[in-house]
């Protein structure tokens, strides 16, 4: 079985986000970019499934400009077998990504499509669900545990839901989106980084995949959240106690 994993290049989670002065978006120039943490978890899970013997190949795909090959190299260094770069300069939103993934799935015919539950830049949490709909595949979202049963051709997925865990059994092929506690991704080791340089990255365009990218909405304005309000200086403990009692009502 082949596993397809999509990985997104986003602003590193530890970077302080700055909004561009013209309010058209956030500043990405000279900012550290990394693989979306949830995508990293999805890739780690795919590698674990492969190592357990339930899959034979892990293919990673990233979409966007030339820089996406950086995250593909990272993914290959973690252990993915080959990469696909869907090259486009146009901005991509979940609907377009889902259509592109659908086209790739037709071409690659994976038994399992693994995605992060959401990207930390736009927090959409839509792609996995949409692509499952297009493919008419069963979906397990927010997976906190994944176990592939090769003999039954199915996968068991545990999801963290309000008040407990939900266990699903999905017939393969299926779509799974990964949550934070699924696993802890491995580091890219030196020998694997060296090997990754020789692994192939295929380049395709949306046109070749026969997917038309349409922009369904315009971003009017991106603004920073309100600044935290300044503190109040009090002169005595009695005043503080008064505030705690009468304003905050905690005493």
């Amino acid at each position: 079985m082949k596993i397809l994993v999509s990985v997104k290049r986003v602003i590193d989670y530890a970077v302080k986000i700055r909004v561009k002065p013209d309010k058209t978006g956030v500043e990405t120039a000279n900012v550290k970019m990394s693989m979306n943490p949830f995508c990293e978890i999805a890739l780690e899970e795919a590698l674990r499934v492969k190592e357990s013997g339930a899959a034979s190949e892990v293919v990673i795909v990233s979409m966007g400009n030339e820089k996406c090959t950086e995250v593909l190299r990272t993914g290959l260094a973690m252990g993915a077998d080959r990469g696909i770069h869907v090259a486009t300069e146009r901005p991509l939103y979940p609907l377009a990504v889902a259509k592109l993934l659908q086209a790739l799935v037709r071409k690659e015919e994976p038994g399992l499509l693994l995605l992060g539950k959401q990207a930390i830049d736009d927090d959409c949490n839509q792609t996995g669900q949409m692509v499952a709909g297009f493919l008419n595949w069963p979906q397990g979202t927010f997976a906190s545990k994944v176990k592939v049963d090769k003999s039954e051709n199915c996968v068991h997925v545990e999801r963290e839901i309000d008040g407990g865990l939900e266990s699903l059994r999905l017939q393969l092929p299926a779509v799974i989106t990964t949550d934070l506690r699924l696993n802890q991704p491995r580091y890219a080791t030196l020998p694997n980084i060296m090997k990754a340089k020789k692994k192939p990255i295929a380049k395709v365009t949306p046109e070749e995949l026969q997917v038309e990218i349409t922009e369904d909405f315009d971003i009017l304005e991106v603004v920073e959240p309100d600044k935290r309000k300044a503190g109040v200086m009090l002169s005595s403990v009695d005043e503080l106690l008064d505030k705690l009692k009468n304003e905050a009502h905690v005493l």
Binding site: D12, Y13, A14, V15, K32, S34, M35, P37, T74, A77, Y187, A188, T189, L190, P191, I193
Partner: peptide
């Protein structure tokens, strides 16, 4: 060097 890992993101740096 016998083996090594390269930090891929700021969290790994840290």
């Amino acid at each position: 060097v016998a083996d090594g890992v390269v930090a891929q993101d700021n969290q790994q740096f840290r």
